[in-house]
Nucleic acid binder design. Structure first.
Length: 860
RNA sequence: GCCCCAGUGGCGGAAUGGUAGACGCGGCAGACUCAAAAUCUGUUGUCGCAAGGCGUGCUGGUUCGAGUCCGGCCUGGGGCACCA
C-alpha cells in the first residue's frame, strides 16, 4: 500500500461503493407513515430515447441537490423517477430497424436506468413507472371514461392540424410557426373526427390559479396567461335585412359600433355554407380559404380577402344604416362566434379590408383634446385610447365608459350580452399512432359510440403489428379492431386512435404517490398526502404544453373525485439549456467536439486529417449540429460528482450553461483537492466528537466565524436556488481551511469542525465524495443520515466592521471600527484617515452621511 | 405588430441604493522536476513608473451616493400572433 499522501482518489470504486450502500440500506425509500413534514421533489421524467444527455444530467443534479438538502433538513422526502415511454421515436425505430416499439423502449429504459444509477441520484426506485405498461395506462383509460361520464370529453368532427410527416394530428400547442413541433413539416388542415378534453371549461380557473403559484417563474405564468388569452367584450346580434334570422358577432370594441363599415363571417360559418349552396362562386371562395395553410409564411403573405354575400346587416346603433356582409378569409370560425363587425378607423385588419373593398372609414375615437376633424386615417388605424366622437350620445365618453354604456344598452334591448372569450381551445387528444394508450371506445353501427366496460380494461395494445404501411398500424390490424359491441353484441370496431402522449405525463406525479396496485392508479389518501409537488424541475420548453395540461388534468381528476388537489406543482424551477461551441469542416458539415482538436499553433483542426475547422457560436446541444458531449464518457472519466459539480457551479440554474472542457477540469480538480484535504489534512485532527479545547487562538476563532457564516449563507443560497453562489461559498471555506495556521492553539479541533461542516454542506452536491470523506473523518454512520448543521448565532455576530469612507461619493479609505460604534466617533475617525485629509485638501465638509456599519460619506 | 426578459473583465458569473468584479475558468511569473504532467505560491478590469484617473450597452434624470430606481434609445434572447 502506498502512503496516504501518495494515494489518489479512486472515483469509480468510491462512487460504485456508496451507490450500493445506499441501495442496500434503502436510504431513499419514502413512506406516508412518517411523522416528519413531507416534501415532494420531482424532475420531469425522461423520454427513454436510449441514452441520457447533458440536459438530463443538469435536471437530475438540480433535483437531487434539492431532495438531499431537504432530507438533511428533516423532511420526509419523496423523490421518484420513471419513464415517459410512449411516443413516436419508438415507432420510427420500428420502421427503420425492424425492432418492436415495446422491445426498443424497454431496452432503452434498462440502459438509461443504469446510466441514471451511475449518477448516484437519491430516487426511491420502488416507485418507478413506465407509461407504456398496461399497469400504468389502464388507469388513464378509466380516467377517460370517468371524464366522459362527467361531461369533460366530447367527440366532434373538426378541422385539425395534420402533420404530413408523422401522419398524425397535432394539438394547437404542438404547432410551432405553422410546423409540427417534432417533424418541423408544415402543418396541413384536415377534417377528422376527434376526441377532445374540455380544457376550456377550466379556462377561467386555470387563469386565476396562476396568481396563487408564487413559486413559479413569472415568465412561465405570463406565457400561460397569454396562451389562455382572456378577453372581455360583447356578443351582439345583427338583424339581417330580408331574412328572419340574426347574425351574432363577438367584439372587444363595442364602443366603435358607430364606426362600423361591414360585417364579416368565417369561411366555415354555417351561414356561408348555406349561401354557397346557391352560389358556386362563393363555394369556390370558401374552398380557397380552406386551402391556405396555417404556416406563418402563408398567413403573412395572405391578403385580406372577402366575398360580398349580397346580404346586409342593420347597425343596431345607427338608424337605417345597412352594413354589407362578407365572407372573409381572416375571420376564424373557432374564435368568438366566427363573425365580426369591422370598424376600419380603429382596427388595422378592418382598415386593410376596407381600403381593398372601398368601404367608408369613420373616425369614432380621437385623442383627448384633439379636433376630430383634423384626424385623417391613411394606411394606419388609430387603435389607441381616447374619447368618443361622431357617436351620438357616446360623444365625449372615454373608450372604457363607452364600452360599458354600449354593452348595458344592448343588454337592455335584449340583443347583446357581456361575454368573455378565450384564445385557449379544447385539447384534441386523438392521435393516429400505434405506440400510445388505446382510447377505450368501441364504435357500433347500431349503438354508436360505446365506452369499453370497466371490466374489460385495460384495452391492451396488440403486440403483433406491422409497420410496412404508412399511418396507424392499429387501423391496419386484421383482428384487434374487430370486436363485439358491448351493448348489442353485433360486430363493431374499436377506436384505433391512441391518446396524445401528453395524456400520460398529465398525471404521473400522482401515480408515484401510490406505488402499490390500486383500482384508480393511486389512492386519494396518498395523493392528498404528497401533492402538490413541492418542487418541480424541468425545461422551459414545457411552459405551456405539459404544465398547462397537467394543471387542467389535476382539476379534472378532482372533479371526478380522484383527489382534492387543484394545482399539481406548488414550486417550479425551469432550468436553462446546455450549450456547446459548434464546429464545421471545410465543406460546411457539422463536426463532433470529439473530432476536433487544437494543433501546435493553437488552430482548430480535424483530428482525422488535420484540415482546418471553423468555430461557430455556442448553441443548445443538439444531435443535428453535433455539438454534443456524452455524459457517459464524462462520468466514466471524471465521475458523477465532478459532472454534478460542474452543472451547479458555473451558472445559475435557470440560465443557459456553456459546456467547456476547462470547466469540467476545474470541477475535477476541486473534487480531488477536497479529498486530499481530508485524507491528508494540513494539521492533525483530534478524534470524532472531541470536546472543544478550553483555549482557541484568535486566528482560529476567526476561522470558526467563517465556518458558521458559511453554514448560514449556504443554507440561504440553497433555499433560493443560488447554487452557483453556494459552491463559491464552499470553495472560499476550503481556501481558508487549507491555510489554517498549523501552530495556532486549537487549530486541529477547528480544522475538524471546518472539514466536517464542509463535507456536510457539500454532501447534497457531491454525495459520493461526501460519504467517503465522512467515513474518512471517522464517522460510522452515513452522511445521508446526518442532519444539516446549525450555525452558532454567537459566531455570526462580527465584533468589528470595515467601513468605507467616501469623499463626494468616491471611495478614499477604509477603516476598521468596532461594530455598532456611534455615528459621531465614526465620523471623527473617518475624517482622521490620511487619504481623506488629502482628498479634502483643507476644505470644510458641508455634510457628512454616516450609514452605521457600512459607510461614511463626506460631502464638500 | 404586441408582450416579456437580459446587456458587468479575455470567459462563466458575484454585488438588501452604500468598498463593482466574490468564486471559478483562462492568462502571466515562479517553486518542485533531467523534463513533463500533477501540485503549490504570487499576480491578473483598464490607462499610468507612481500618485491618481477611467470603468457595469448608450443617453438624460432622481440621490450625499446608481450595475441596482425613473424616462428615452440601441443590441441580443424568448413568448404570442389574421384572437375581432
Amino acid at each position: 500500500m502506498p502512503p496516504r499522501d501518495q494515494e489518489r482518489y479512486n472515483v469509480r470504486e468510491t462512487e460504485a461503493k456508496w451507490q450500493s450502500v445506499w441501495e442496500e440500506r434503502q436510504s431513499f425509500a419514502a413512506s406516508e407513515n412518517d411523522p416528519r413534514p413531507k416534501y415532494y421533489v420531482l424532475e420531469m421524467f425522461p423520454y427513454p430515447s436510449g441514452r441520457i444527455h447533458m440536459g438530463h444530467v443538469r435536471n437530475y443534479t438540480l433535483g437531487d441537490l434539492v431532495a438531499r438538502y431537504k432530507r438533511a433538513r428533516g423532511f420526509n422526502v419523496l423523490h421518484p423517477m420513471g419513464w415517459d415511454a410512449f411516443g413516436l421515436p419508438a415507432e420510427n425505430a420500428a420502421i427503420q430497424n425492424n425492432v418492436h416499439p415495446s422491445k426498443w423502449t424497454r431496452e432503452n429504459i434498462a440502459s438509461m436506468r443504469e446510466q441514471l444509477k451511475s449518477m448516484g441520484l437519491s430516487y426511491d426506485w420502488k416507485r418507478e413507472v413506465a407509461t407504456c405498461e398496461p399497469e400504468y395506462y389502464r388507469h388513464e383509460q378509466k380516467m377517460f371514461l370517468d371524464f366522459l361520464a362527467n361531461d369533460l370529453v366530447y367527440r366532434k368532427e373538426s378541422w385539425v392540424n395534420w402533420d404530413p410527416v408523422e401522419h398524425t394530428v397535432l394539438a394547437n400547442e404542438q404547432v410551432i410557426d405553422g410546423c409540427g413541433w417534432r417533424s418541423g413539416a408544415p402543418v396541413e388542415k384536415r377534417l377528422l373526427n376527434q376526441w377532445f378534453l374540455k380544457i376550456t371549461d377550466f379556462a377561467e380557473d386555470l387563469l386565476k390559479g396562476l396568481e396563487q403559484l408564487e413559486r413559479w417563474p413569472d415568465r412561465v405564468r405570463l406565457m400561460q396567461e397569454n396562451w389562455i388569452g382572456r378577453s372581455e367584450g360583447l356578443r351582439l346580434s345583427f338583424t339581417l335585412a330580408d331574412r328572419a334570422d340574426a347574425l351574432e358577432v363577438y367584439t372587444t370594441r363595442p364602443d366603435t359600433l358607430h364606426g362600423a363599415a361591414f360585417v364579416a363571417i368565417a369561411a366555415n360559418h354555417p351561414l356561408a355554407a348555406e349561401l354557397a349552396r346557391n352560389n358556386p362562386a362563393l363555394g369556390e371562395f370558401i374552398a380557397e380559404c380552406n386551402r391556405i395553410g396555417t404556416s406563418e409564411a402563408a398567413i403573412e403573405t395572405a391578403e385580406k380577402k372577402g366575398f360580398a354575400t349580397g346580404l346586409t346587416a342593420l347597425n343596431p346603433v345607427v338608424e337605417g344604416q345597412r352594413l354589407p356582409v362578407y365572407v372573409a378569409n381572416f375571420v376564424l370560425m373557432d374564435y368568438g362566434t366566427g363573425a365580426i363587425f369591422g370598424c376600419p378607423a380603429h382596427d388595422q385588419r378592418d382598415l386593410d379590408f376596407a381600403r381593398k373593398y372601398d368601404l367608408p372609414v369613420t373616425v369614432v375615437v380621437a385623442p383627448k383634446d384633439v379636433d376630430p376633424a383634423s384626424i385623417v386615417i391613411g394606411t394606419e388605424a388609430y387603435a389607441e385610447d381616447g374619447v368618443l366622437v361622431n357617436s351620438g350620445d357616446l360623444n365625449g365618453l372615454t373608450v372604457a365608459e363607452a364600452k360599458a354604456r354600449v354593452i348595458d344598452a344592448m343588454e337592455a334591448r335584449g340583443i347583446g350580452q357581456r361575454a368573455v372569450n378565450y384564445r385557449l381551445r379544447d385539447w384534441g387528444v386523438s392521435r393516429q399512432r400505434y405506440w400510445g394508450c388505446p382510447i377505450p371506445i368501441i364504435h357500433c353501427e347500431a349503438c354508436g359510440v360505446v365506452p369499453v366496460p370497466e371490466a374489460d380494461l385495460p384495452v391492451r395494445l396488440p403486440e403483433d403489428v406491422s409497420f410496412d404501411k404508412p399511418g396507424n398500424p392499429l387501423a391496419h390490424h386484421p383482428t384487434w379492431k374487430n370486436v363485439a359491441c358491448p351493448c348489442c353484441g353485433k360486430p363493431a370496431r374499436r377506436e384505433t386512435d391512441t391518446f396524445d402522449t401528453f395524456f400520460e405525463s398529465s398525471w404521473y406525479f400522482a401515480r408515484y404517490c401510490s406505488p402499490q396496485e390500486t383500482s384508480r392508479g393511486f389512492t386519494a389518501e396518498a395523493a392528498n398526502h404528497w401533492l402538490p409537488v413541492d418542487q418541480y424541475i424541468g425545461g422551459i420548453e414545457h411552459a405551456v404544453l405539459h404544465l398547462l395540461y397537467s394543471r387542467f388534468f389535476t382539476r379534472a381528476l378532482k372533479h371526478c373525485g380522484y383527489l382534492d388537489v387543484e394545482e399539481p406543482f406548488a414550486g417550479l424551477l425551469t432550468q436553462g439549456m446546455i450549450c456547446h461551441e459548434t464546429y464545421k469542416d471545410v465543406d460546411g458539415k457539422w463536426l463532433f467536439p470529439t473530432d476536433v482538436e487544437r494543433n501546435a499553433d493553437g488552430a482548430l483542426v480535424e483530428i482525422a486529417n488535420g484540415r482546418p475547422v471553423t468555430l461557430g457560436r455556442s448553441e443548445k446541444m443538439s444531435k443535428s449540429k453535433k455539438n454534443v458531449v456524452d455524459p457517459a464518457g464524462i462520468i466514466g472519466t471524471y465521475g458523477a460528482d465532478t459532472a454534478r459539480l460542474f452543472m451547479l457551479s458555473d451558472s445559475p440554474p435557470e440560465r443557459d450553461l456553456d459546456w467547456t472542457e476547462s470547466g469540467i477540469d476545474g470541477a475535477f480538480r476541486y473534487v480531488n483537492r477536497l479529498w486530499r484535504m481530508v485524507v491528508v489534512p494540513p494539521v492533525e485532527l483530534p478524534p470524532v466528537g472531541s470536546p472543544r479545547p478550553a483555549a482557541l487562538a484568535d486566528s482560529v476563532v476567526k476561522t470558526r466565524r467563517q465556518i458558521h457564516k458559511t453554514i448560514a449563507v449556504v443554507g440561504e443560497d440553497l433555499e433560493r436556488f443560488h447554487f452557483n453562489k453556494a459552491v463559491a461559498r464552499l470553495r472560499e471555506l476550503s481556501n481558508t481551511l487549507a491555510e489554517i495556521p498549523a501552530a495556532a492553539e486549537g487549530a486541529g479541533w477547528v480544522l475538524r469542525e471546518g472539514l466536517e461542516t464542509l463535507v456536510t454542506l457539500i454532501g447534497p452536491m457531491l454525495p459520493h465524495l461526501g460519504e467517503e470523506l465522512w467515513f474518512e473523518l471517522g464517522h460510522t454512520d452515513l452522511l445521508v443520515d446526518a442532519p444539516w448543521p446549525d450555525a452558532d448565532p454567537a459566531l455570526l455576530v462580527e465584533d468589528s466592521v470595515t467601513i468605507a469612507v467616501q469623499v463626494n461619493g468616491k471611495l478614499r479609505a477604509t477603516i476598521e471600527l468596532p461594530k455598532d460604534i456611534d455615528a459621531a466617533t465614526a465620523e471623527t475617525l473617518a475624517l482622521a484617515a490620511p487619504a481623506v485629509i488629502t482628498a479634502l485638501d483643507g476644505k470644510t465638509p458641508r455634510k457628512i452621511i454616516v450609514v452605521p456599519n457600512r459607510i461614511v460619506n463626506v460631502v464638500v
